[in-house]
Simulated scan of single mutants.
Amino acid sequence: MGPIFLIGYRCTGKTSTGKYLADLLKKRFLDTDLVLESTYGTTIAQMVARYGWSYFRAKETETLMRLDLSDAPVIATGGGIILAEQNRTFLTKNGVVVYLYATASVLTDRIRKDENSTEQRPDLTCDGLALETEKMLEIRTPLYHSLACISINTEEYTPKAAAHQIKDELYPGSPIEIS
């Protein structure tokens, strides 16, 4: 099996679940946002503030296209990576896509509680957080669904339990356990 790409909106648990899943499957874990920040020596928020969203989205695509997929890693992607058709094609052609989701109200609460949100994740619109989340989900949810081989409601699963659920769906009957 190739890479496993985790997609979904902010704070759906892509990074946390991805780390557990990588450990569970004894695979390398990557987070495209962290790779991008490391590559360009800046945070996403700083990049967007300095150069704008279009520039960031272009760098996000470059980052995705340059990932080393040779050892079939588990990859947490940025929430908006699915906006570019080129990225959607890349994800579906190069691996298994797992969609992690939750309701707008739960995501809004998680974003407010997430220490990284303010500093590293810039606002997407000028709307308040709740309205922004609802608007973005309205646009993105059909794209997430169209790519997903597996969908996991992260309101129902902790990141560790979500990782086990993904493993069970990808490898039914497998005895692999987190140590």
Rank of each mutant, 00 (worst) to 15 (best):
I139S: 06
F90K: 09
T108I: 10
L30K: 03
L69R: 04
L69K: 03
A58Y: 10
N116I: 12
R112E: 03
Q120Y: 15
F90P: 05
C149D: 13
D127N: 14
H145Y: 09
N94H: 14
K135R: 13
T103Y: 08
Q46M: 09
W53M: 08
S38G: 15
V106F: 01
M136N: 02
G128P: 09
A148M: 08
I139Q: 11
A58D: 15
E37I: 01
N94I: 03
G95V: 06
R28L: 02
I75L: 06
V35W: 00
V106S: 05
A49Q: 14
R121P: 02
A72Q: 07
S146Q: 04
P142K: 12
D33H: 03
I75V: 15
E134W: 00
T63K: 06
L137C: 04
D109K: 11
K26I: 08
V74T: 02
I111H: 04
A45R: 10
S54Q: 15
D127H: 13
T125G: 11
K135L: 06
T141I: 09
T103H: 11
D31P: 00
E37L: 02
E85F: 08
E62T: 09
A49S: 14
K135C: 01
T77N: 09
L83T: 10
P122L: 05
E60Y: 09
T125Y: 12
R57L: 13
A130Y: 11
D109R: 10
E132M: 12
L147E: 05
C126K: 14
P142D: 07
L83R: 10
G128A: 12
S38L: 13
E62I: 08
S70T: 15
G41K: 09
T125L: 15
L91N: 01
G80H: 07
L129A: 02
E132C: 11
M47L: 11
A84D: 11
T39V: 12
L100Y: 01
Y144T: 03
T141F: 02
G79D: 00
R28M: 03
C149T: 13
E119N: 13
I111S: 00
T77C: 10
D109V: 04
G128N: 15
T108W: 05
P73K: 03
M65L: 15
T32H: 01
L124G: 06
P122S: 07
F90R: 10
Y101G: 00
M136G: 01
I81M: 04
K27S: 10
K113N: 10
Y144P: 01
D127C: 12
S70F: 11
D114E: 09
E62Q: 14
V35Q: 06
F56N: 03
T77I: 08
R28P: 00
L131V: 08
C126D: 15
D33S: 06
F90Y: 15
N87Y: 05
P73A: 04
L124M: 13
V106Q: 05
Q86C: 06
L107K: 07
T141L: 05
A102C: 14
N87P: 07
N116R: 14
M65I: 09
E138D: 12
V97K: 04
T61V: 13
M47R: 03
I150Y: 06
Y99H: 14
S70N: 14
L147Q: 07
W53N: 07
L91H: 05
R57Y: 11
A102I: 09
S117A: 15
T125I: 12
D31R: 01
G78E: 01
D31G: 04
K27A: 10
D31I: 03
